[in-house]
Amino acid sequence: MSMKKLAAVVLAMSVSCAAPAFAVAKGGIDVISREEGSGTRGAFIELFGVEQKDTDGKKVDMTTDNADITNSTSVMMTMVAGNPNAIGYASMGSLKKADVKALAISGAAATAENIRKGDYKIARPFNVAAKGQLRPAAQAFLNFVMSAQGQKVIVDNGYVAVNEKAAPFAAKRVAGKVVAAGSSSIAPIMEKLKEAYLLVNPAAEIEVQTSDSTTGMTSAISGICDLGMASRGLKESELKAGLTPVAIAMDGIAVIVNKGNELKGLTVEQVRDIYTGKIENWETLK
């Protein structure tokens, strides 16, 4: 880790999550991004055009080399909350208790309702994936997630249901351990789904392991987990390896800044230019 990145992490961990009211962004923009392998980063660079084709037609992540890198949603929130000049991005559903501000994008606020209406277009699926036939315990849990009760948990926690007309869950006491592993963006809602499921099936044991989307897919391919979690679409290589994805929810990606930042919104093009290093100062955006 470079001295700049280390300093950014130390600063974020040492300050209060509540930014002072007078902390107005000025000067250089401190760009914060997720690590390679993160589904949120993969979806972000695709949706904002940060991923671009080179002369050979190959897709290349053009995120500026000056970006500070964090490997989890929670650290991203802490770094942005503690730095008046920071900009980052995170799962919209994870913002409920975060002390950061989500910017409107191209005039649309980052809300679940705007995703449902199609006004906020920076959205991606939350997928779980498995290789081959699920064991009975894992299939029962997935059935709950896709049921009316499971989809209600998703909506109640700020995400968008994929099936608003889902049938009620037919409660069955299916015993056995189920392991879901992967995306740190999906992990919080998976924990909520776990809590709700255990109320109707206390015979089950659900373990949620948090890492990133790529690790989740690798774990599902190798059989380390029952359900891999990916906050992006599956790659062709993952599908060829035998994974079958199921979208359990839709989630927006929010562009976040410190609460003291006076900026209210950006265009897709402005976000792209910030993350590719073309825009480096806050004054450029005012």
Rank of each mutant, 00 (worst) to 15 (best):
S2R: 12
K5M: 13
A7N: 15
L11G: 06
M13D: 15
S14L: 14
A21V: 15
A23G: 06
V24D: 01
V24M: 07
A25G: 08
D30A: 13
R34F: 13
E36R: 11
G37H: 04
T40L: 07
T40M: 04
R41Q: 06
G42N: 11
F44G: 01
E46P: 00
E46F: 10
L47N: 04
G49P: 04
V50G: 00
E51Y: 04
Q52V: 04
D56T: 14
G57N: 12
V60H: 06
D61W: 07
M62Q: 15
T64P: 03
A67T: 01
A67G: 09
N71K: 12
N71C: 11
N71A: 15
N83V: 07
A90H: 02
M92P: 03
M92H: 12
G93M: 03
K101M: 10
L103I: 10
L103P: 03
A104C: 10
I105L: 12
I105V: 15
G107S: 09
A109M: 12
T111V: 10
T111I: 10
I115W: 01
R116P: 00
D119M: 06
Y120G: 01
F126T: 02
N127W: 00
N127R: 05
V128F: 04
A130G: 10
G132H: 07
G132C: 09
L134K: 08
P136Y: 08
A137H: 10
Q139F: 05
N143Q: 15
S147L: 09
S147D: 06
Q149V: 07
Q151N: 08
I154N: 00
V155E: 15
V155K: 08
N157D: 14
V162I: 14
N163F: 11
E164L: 13
A166D: 08
A166T: 07
A170T: 14
V174S: 07
A175E: 15
V178A: 02
A180L: 10
S184H: 01
M190N: 02
M190K: 00
E191T: 08
L193D: 01
L199D: 15
N201G: 07
E205V: 14
E205M: 10
V208S: 01
D212K: 02
T215Y: 07
G216I: 02
T218N: 13
S219H: 03
I221K: 02
L227G: 01
G228L: 06
K235G: 02
K240D: 12
A241P: 05
G242Y: 02
G242L: 01
T244L: 07
P245C: 05
D251N: 12
I253A: 00
I253C: 03
V255H: 01
I256A: 04
I256W: 03
I256M: 03
K259Y: 02
N261K: 00
T267N: 09
N281S: 13
W282F: 06
